[in-house]
């Protein structure tokens, strides 16, 4: 039964990683990366690694999307005025 959770989590991680790469717009990619962070944390819990799941939650869930969006906002603010 424990393997079922691991297989489901693995397929979800593979799916969200593929989506995170195929989405070309950085803002939409930040959204998918947030979901990827949560799904990775679930996979790490299924593989009995709670410490790694905790750090993935904190980093992948809130920190990386925030950094990506701030970078997009800074780049868009510069390019917005040139046109």
């Amino acid at each position: 039964m424990a393997d079922a959770v691991i297989v489901v989590a693995l397929l979800l991680v593979a799916g969200s990683a593929t989506v995170a790469v195929l989405v070309r717009d950085p803002v939409r990619q930040a959204l998918v990366l947030a979901v990827l962070g949560v799904v990775l944390a679930v996979l790490f819990t299924a593989v009995q690694a709670p410490d790694v799941a905790l750090s993935q939650l904190a980093v992948g869930g809130a920190l990386t999307p925030l950094l990506l969006l701030l970078a997009v906002r800074k780049v868009k603010r510069r390019k917005g005025r040139e046109r």
Binding site: V13, A17, A20, V21, R24, D25, P26, Q29, A30, L33, L36, L40, F44, V52, Q56, G60, T64, L68, A71, V72, V75
Partner: peptide, 15 residues
Amino acid sequence: IHAVGCLSVCQSATY
């Protein structure tokens, strides 16, 4: 910026 996102996907493969 999209490339940096793809790099963090590569890193999660190692985990």
